[in-house]
Every structure is written in C-alpha cells, then in structure tokens.
Simulated assay, not measured.
Amino acid sequence: MVKCTLPNEELFYLCMLAGAESLLGIEDLRGNLDTEEIRNKWIAVSDRLIHKGILSFEENSELYIDSDYAELISVLAFPEQAFACLLEENDEVSLEFIHSRHGKYTSLKGEENCEVELFLERDDCFKLLVEHFLLSDCLEELQFDLPAEIINYAFALAGTGAVKSSAMMLEPYGLKYEVAEELTRAVYDESLCRIVAGYRFDREHPAEALFHCLKTPQGTWITCMRQGREQVRLFRQRPEAALRQIIQFHGI
C-alpha cells in the first residue's frame, strides 16, 4: 500500500506529466492561466517535487516519476472506472473518490491537500469497496427491477417520514411489505444512507450510474440507476455478489 498527502497542484501536475487529459476529483489549476503562466507554475511545482524526491532527471534530461508514485499516478490519470462517494461527518459533507485500473484501486480525498492511498492487494481493495458502499452480509439475497419514477417517488415519500405509504408503493413490484418497510425506513434514517456516483471510462461503451446504498439489519440494499434507463436495479446481496454488480454496472 502506498499512502501520501500532496497539495492539489502537485498531484494535478504529476497527472499532467503522465499524460492525463482530464481528471476526476482533482482540481484543474490551469483555469484562466495563459501558456507562460502555466509554464512558470509547472517550473515551481516540479522544483518542489524534485526536492521531495518524487521527481528526478534521467540521463536524457527527461523528468522521471518515482516508481511508487508512478503506479499511483497511473491509476488516477487513466482509470477504467471511478466512484465519487458523498460522505457526511460531523455535519460536514465531503467527496471521496475511488479510481480503479487493472485491479488496482486508489482512495482520494481532500481539496487543497489531497490524501491518496494506493491499494494493490485484493483483500485491501475489497475492504475499501465494502466500506464505501456500506455493504454487510445478509441471509436472503433479493433482486428487483423497478420503474425509475416509482422508486424515486417512493424514496422521496420515505424521506418525508411517510415510511409505510412508501413501502406500500413498492409492494406491487414484488417486495413483501415487511421487506419494503425495512428498506424505506433506511431511506428516512439518513445515517444509514450513502450516495455514490459511478463512472466507466470506456471510449466505446462509457457509462454512468447513481448508487443509493441503504444499510439495514437484514443487509445492505443497493439501487443502481443507469443514466438514460427507465428501470432501476434494486438488490440486496452478500458483499462479494453485490460488488460484482456494482463494478459491472454498465451491464445492468
């Protein structure tokens, strides 16, 4: 595992040096700067990175990124998938990003100063995803495909406190009332909820999805809403199976 804390501008320019064209979760500092200002900014940032030992010059005078950082930067700069997790703690809301590439994962949080961790071992990656999607074990696995407008309305109703009315809306779509009420009660209790946006960066088949994670005593419910789709996938599964669906959401 590689862990570091870097100012946003240092992380941004490292990704640019690696060849990234756009980034998720890292502020683009070029803004309204002209070419000369960008060049001066890069010189100042690269000097600091050289001083830290993150950058060095090769024999041909080209800059070289330290191998540990290079592996981390390759995931941030060229992810196959990324997830933006909306976190709430002590009445403060923040975003934490997960990037993945070739089975490697990074966790990125912070704005001016970015905390980044690179996860290489399967167990560590699994633990990271389980934590961010609030996954928990369950005795009975369930799955339903519902109209998006129905589940959106039901969840909005549950958010006002009308838990029972919300549960009754879901009954005609295959959910038993007791199961539906457990689900809608979790919607009302915001401490048991998490919103995660998922992105698949595939030039031929890009995809986006919004996940609603709802932790209940009987297991964690996940709703997966694909952009442009009229149906929503609602499922409660053991963590391993749930993660397969989450990671392969483009096929839902």
Rank of each mutant, 00 (worst) to 15 (best):
E36V: 06
E37R: 00
R39K: 09
R39Q: 10
R39V: 01
N40M: 13
W42P: 00
I43R: 06
V45F: 10
D47F: 07
D47Q: 09
D47K: 11
D47G: 09
R48I: 08
R48W: 10
R48F: 11
H51D: 12
K52Q: 12
G53T: 07
I54R: 02
I54L: 13
L55Q: 01
F57V: 05
E58A: 09
E58Y: 06
E58F: 03
E59D: 10
N60D: 13
N60R: 09
N60E: 10
S61N: 09
S61E: 08
E62C: 06
E62Y: 05
I65Y: 02
I65M: 00
S67G: 04
S67F: 12
S67E: 14
Y69A: 03
Y69R: 01
A70C: 06
A70I: 01
E71I: 13
V75C: 03
L76K: 00
L76P: 02
A77H: 02
F78K: 02
F78M: 07
F78C: 02
P79F: 04
E80Y: 04
E80S: 07
A82N: 03
A82I: 11
A82G: 10
F83G: 02
F83Y: 05
C85E: 11
L86N: 14
L86P: 09
L87C: 07
N90E: 14
D91Q: 15
D91K: 15
D91F: 15
D91C: 13
V93L: 11
E96S: 08
E96T: 10
E96V: 14
F97S: 00
F97I: 12
I98F: 00
S100E: 14
S100I: 14
S100V: 13
H102C: 07
K104V: 04
K104W: 11
Y105W: 13
T106F: 05
T106P: 04
T106D: 00
S107G: 13
S107M: 14
L108Y: 02
K109W: 11
G110C: 08
E111V: 15
E111M: 10
E111F: 09
E112C: 12
E112K: 15
N113W: 02
C114K: 08
E115D: 09
E115T: 15
E115V: 15
V116Q: 00
E117K: 10
F119K: 00
F119W: 10
L120H: 04
L120I: 04
E121P: 03
R122G: 05
D123C: 12
D123T: 01
